[in-house]
């Protein structure tokens, strides 16, 4: 099958870093605006679900634990931010740079090859996830919903998870005919993941078939690990989820780079 060739590891050089630097420079220029959404978004969720819904549901039982609904929610908010930051950075934003600004065309005329450019973009997407996760961690710690020392472990995790969702976003950028069509993976994949990954309620209350489906979502595993960390109950399920996330990240990263190369190098 010819599809196998898209899983061949691409040749990436250290120059990929220069693309990360380029994006960092743009971000630094506009950081005041860039920091507002990741700060406000979790606050909105926290008020709507944590304080609104949390008024009716004070505690929640799952996996043999009993915790307050807000403590249950906090790691989900961090995970949602990780997913959204990476995915949107490497879908819409990358598509604009690739298609409208011709930034990739300009860069591949230098010693960088397209593999380096995409890798730099993905690393930047992961960084955005880490930055935004960091902001939310501050917010939820300020509300006393997580233990600040435990939650620091989520920072490296947010980079890994960010890379996963960046690669997923880049994958859709590589195959989408135009920017409007990027709405499809958002409605059909990102939104369902946001709602049905054990984010707002435990998966165990879903019918069996849905549970199995939700188990395929990378988001389910990211939420599982994050919650394990913030509730200080890491065990084998978190370990398996981590393996799942690692494998998915590696495969999606390779696939997205190769498909982007197929799109751009003719």
């Amino acid at each position: 099958m010819s599809f196998i060739k898209y899983f061949r590891p691409p040749k990436v050089s250290r120059l990929a870093w220069k693309v990360w630097l380029r994006n960092k420079d743009v971000f630094a220029k506009t950081y005041r605006v860039s920091f507002i959404p990741p700060f406000l978004e979790p606050l909105l969720y926290l008020f709507a679900f944590g304080f609104g819904l949390g008024f009716f549901i004070t505690t929640i039982n799952f996996d043999g634990l009993t915790v307050s609904y807000r403590e249950f929610l906090a790691p989900a908010l961090i995970s949602i931010s990780i997913m959204n930051s990476g995915f949107f950075e490497c879908s819409y934003n990358s598509f604009v740079r690739m298609h409208y600004q011709k930034t990739y065309d300009a860069i591949i005329s230098t010693p960088l090859n397209i593999e380096d450019v995409i890798t730099g973009e993905l690393l930047w997407g992961a960084t955005r996830s880490m930055i935004n996760a960091g902001i939310i961690i501050l917010v939820v710690s300020a509300f006393g919903l997580v233990d600040l020392t435990l939650v620091l472990l989520v920072i490296p995790l947010s980079f890994l998870g960010g890379l996963l969702f960046s690669a997923m976003g880049m994958l859709f950028s590589a195959i989408t005919p135009n920017i409007e069509s990027l709405n499809y993976p958002v409605f059909l994949l990102v939104t369902p993941m946001l709602l049905f990954s054990g984010t707002f309620f435990p998966l165990s209350i879903l019918p069996g078939a849905f549970q199995a489906l939700a188990f395929i979502f990378p988001m389910t595993h990211l939420v599982g690990i994050t919650r394990g960390i913030t509730l200080n109950s890491v065990g084998m399920p978190q370990f398996y989820s981590l393996v799942w996330v690692l494998v998915a990240t590696i495969l999606l990263t390779i696939l997205s780079i190769n498909l982007m190369k197929r799109r751009l190098i003719q």
Binding site: R22, Q101, K102, T103, D105, A106, S109, T110, P111
Partner: peptide, 16 residues
């Protein structure tokens, strides 16, 4: 590519 200087037909300056 290290020893080339390229001015493409299409403008691809970095608008950012």
């Amino acid at each position: 590519k290290r020893i080339l200087g390229v001015a493409p037909q299409e403008n691809n300056l970095d608008p950012d």
